[in-house]
């Protein structure tokens, strides 16, 4: 019963133990370590992936130099190149910007700035959420049956509707819902006080949006849109259905107007070239595919880095 006596060394020892815990505290750092490892695993995967692709592409850069970028597609692996794919991807992205950016921003402005909580609004919101979850290849089916078959071959009367414009329309529908959601988030981040101040001096809703809400939201809208476009740039599944050409094809003769290239000629895209080359059995294509992947990742990296710089510049201008 000595332990009950207050102040004895034995009691002090018991209290110390009760507060610190009997066991050495090993679970806590162990769990932290395990969790950190699962996060570092993603980093490791990323590093291995990039290293593997760059290493496999090295022979191509050493032997071919820039010609692997600037050549047209060719059935001979030693002469083939990816410029047609890069051109196609850039043009597709231009079409996507022209179509989905204004549509997406307008729809988001309606939902955030005008819409009241009606049944129509709830339907619109639920519909956009669901569209964002539709697998990309299903958008390819939409492109195939509506844009390629119904509109271009049926209504316009083209022999083959498998053109850049069909691919661009398909990708535009794919990114539209994501464009709406990112713009909505950007608009939601604009403080209500800015709108109230503008209404307070007698501005109409559109004047408030045009002169006060959009300028504040523009850096976020800009960043969100470019990230969305980067996703469209790397997208390939819908293009398989909307008619991108897998095999080699002859380049249109020099001097063909760009409108003809977009409206009437066959096309391909950089991710489609990667897909096609990765399926080729010949050994040369292992390195060629890696080179095309490096080109794709470099383009995406440059665009993303450029966006971050441009956003910072925009934000600085806004603050002044």
């Amino acid at each position: 019963m000595t332990a009950r006596t207050m102040g004895t060394p034995v009691t002090q020892e018991m209290i110390r133990r009760a507060l610190e815990g009997r066991k050495v505290n090993i679970i806590n750092p162990l769990v932290a370590l395990l969790l950190l490892i699962s996060l570092l695993a993603s980093l490791a995967i990323l590093v291995v992936l990039l290293w593997d692709v760059v290493a496999k592409s090295m022979p191509v850069w050493q032997e071919r130099g820039w010609s692997v970028i600037t050549n047209d597609l060719s059935p001979r692996p030693a002469e083939t190149g990816m410029i047609q794919g890069i051109f196609g991807s850039v043009m597709l992205t231009v079409i996507v910007v022209v179509l989905s950016f204004p549509l997406g921003v307008a729809a988001a402005i309606y939902l955030e700035e005008y819409a009241r909580d009606t049944r129509l609004t709830r339907l619109l919101v639920a519909n956009i959420r669901n569209l964002a979850g539709v697998p990309s290849i299903v958008y390819g089916l939409l492109g195939l049956s509506v844009f390629v078959k119904l509109i271009l071959e049926g209504m316009v009367g083209q022999v083959s509707g498998r053109t850049l414009i069909a691919g661009g329309l398909t990708l535009s529908m794919l990114v539209l819902s994501i464009m709406v959601i990112t713009t909505q988030e950007a608009l939601r981040a604009v403080p209500l006080a800015i709108r109230e101040a503008s209404f307070g001096v007698g501005a109409t809703p559109w004047q408030t949006i045009r002169h006060h809400v959009l300028p504040v939201a523009s850096p976020a809208i800009f960043t969100g849109s470019v990230l969305t476009l980067a996703r469209a740039f790397g997208e390939s599944a819908p293009l398989l259905l909307a008619g991108a050409v897998l095999s080699t094809f002859f380049a249109a003769p020099e001097g063909t107007p760009i409108t003809d290239l977009v409206l009437g000629e066959k096309y391909t895209a950089l991710p489609i070239i990667i897909y096609n080359w990765s399926r080729q059995p010949q050994q040369e294509y292992v390195a060629l595919t890696a080179a095309a992947i490096v080109a794709l990742l470099v383009i995406l990296l440059v665009v993303n880095a450029g966006t971050i710089l441009a956003r910072d510049a925009l934000e600085r201008r806004n603050r002044m």
Binding site: L46, L49, D52, A237, P271, I274, A290
Partner: peptide, 16 residues
């Protein structure tokens, strides 16, 4: 990692 296109992962799965 989220920004890496899926074709790239396909190649990585096939060749690595």
């Amino acid at each position: 990692l989220a920004g890496i296109p899926s074709v790239v992962l396909g190649y990585f799965a096939l060749r690595f």
